[in-house]
Design a protein around this nucleic acid. Structure first.
Lengths: 244, 244
DNA sequence: CGTGGCTTTGAAACGGGTCAAGACTGGTGG
DNA sequence: CCACCAGTCTTGACCCGTTTCAAAGCCACG
């Protein structure tokens, strides 16, 4: 899993940061950035490692710099639902609360840009650009969570899998590249995200491939020749954004 | 449905507002309140009326003063999922975006305290107390949405219904009153919220009553003698807040 | 005393879960 | 270089919970 062939040397200078323009610091001016620069620290986890356990203290806020983290919520008997998938530039943490309701796990090798919670809360008070951006990001997350509620409550297994693949292709293909991507998570994690079992995910992947909706390249690589077909399989509105 | 026997005369003065201490204006000082006072307007809808259609312009932000509104998201073929249930003090609107992705419907007779979008956005810039509170509320909504994802993805029909009833009882029984409440929505709306069919909701309500977990009083009234039993039926962690 | 909307109940069908093998992949050590 | 192994994924057969389809009951209201 440690496929970190290009271990991109993390810059300590914010202005060269790969997520600079999309993260919680996106709207900061140079002087604000230098404040951030002074209080941030980087930390990395290997794929599979736990970042924080459900219900434990979370004494930092952070941005995903590189890799993929998952948020999951579990019931006593072990049933588990993923409630968030954090990709580079996404935010982790909950200002005003000192523990997390979710288990945070590194799905791939992961690097976070972290701030102590107290320092970050001071930042929120003093730096409107950070608070504004955080509100914007929280509202985007809320929209995404609600979109996922529609998927979990009403979509069929086939539509669920197709929707997930489409989302990954869209996030990977930011500016009109080819519709091809590496899945950042295992089948198991996909099942946890989609409210399915791993067997059902596997069967639907096979069915979508058999039907010519997607092509696979190894276990993790996916692509689609006809994004419209995939969007249709995902049960998307015809007027939905025809990206990818 | 127009059971508005106590048509509480809405005060125009914020300081006497029933949701004053929990809404987006909760942290405002007297002088800030007077600014709000000047730009707000009230508007009411009858049960069943549509406030805004999915995808239409939403040129205001608002707080629920009285009644209950629902947010729903639909697919082309008509499948519908409720993604939010707004009770008094809850916030409606999306600063920074001019249209809504959800259909907003009055589930009961409804009164909103509204602000023009532009005026509200100005308020956000000038009144940190409002912006702070809005961020806090957005993060609470996000937690609630994620909790609902666990329900939609992993809970059984019986657990879903029990969870909903428990949530209603908890919100109605704010400070240790008896565990009794009126359901603010129809069976149909419950089904839409829980990702079930109306028939399944009805069957599970019957089963919970038969099993002595709840008692019903007419179609809308519910109560429970043993909140622990209901929490268990809802699949809650033993260490979950034992409220109600 | 109908009428229409909402709710309950029943019987049958079906989608996804469960259980159980088996196949593929990448890494390790002989 | 190949055999082995553990982890991951795929496939098959069967089962069960929820949906679907259909009909009847209840209630408020005119």
């Amino acid at each position: 899993m440690a496929r970190r062939d290009s271990t991109l040397r993390i810059e300590t200078d914010c202005s060269a940061c790969p997520i600079r323009h999309r993260a919680v610091c996106a709207q900061c001016e140079p002087d604000e950035l230098s404040v951030l620069n002074d209080i941030k620290t980087y930390r990395s986890w290997k794929a599979g490692e736990t970042v924080v356990m459900e219900g434990e203290p979370l004494d930092f806020a952070a941005s995903v710099v590189q890799g993929c983290a998952t948020l999951t919520r579990s019931m006593e008997d072990g049933r588990t639902q993923m409630v968030g998938l954090l990709l580079p530039s996404d935010f982790l943490g909950r200002p005003g609360r000192d523990r997390t309701a979710y288990q945070v796990t590194a799905a791939t090798d992961l690097t976070l840009c972290m701030f102590r919670r107290s320092a970050f809360e001071a930042l929120l008070r003093d730096t409107p650009h950070v608070a504004d951006r955080l509100l914007e990001m929280a509202l985007d997350e809320l929209d995404a969570a609600r979109e996922w509620m529609l998927l979990l409550g009403r979509k069929t297994a086939r539509e669920k899998v197709a929707t997930f693949l489409l989302m990954i292709l869209r996030r990977a293909t930011l500016d009109g590249g080819p519709a091809r991507a590496e899945l950042p998570i295992t089948r198991d994690a996909m099942a946890t995200y989609l409210g399915l079992t791993i067997e059902t995910v596997s069967r639907q992947m096979t069915a979508l491939r058999r039907d010519g909706v997607i092509a696979t390249d190894g276990l993790r690589g996916i692509s689609t020749a006809d994004p419209g077909l995939l969007a249709e399989a995902a049960g998307e509105d015809a007027d939905g954004a025809p990206i990818v």
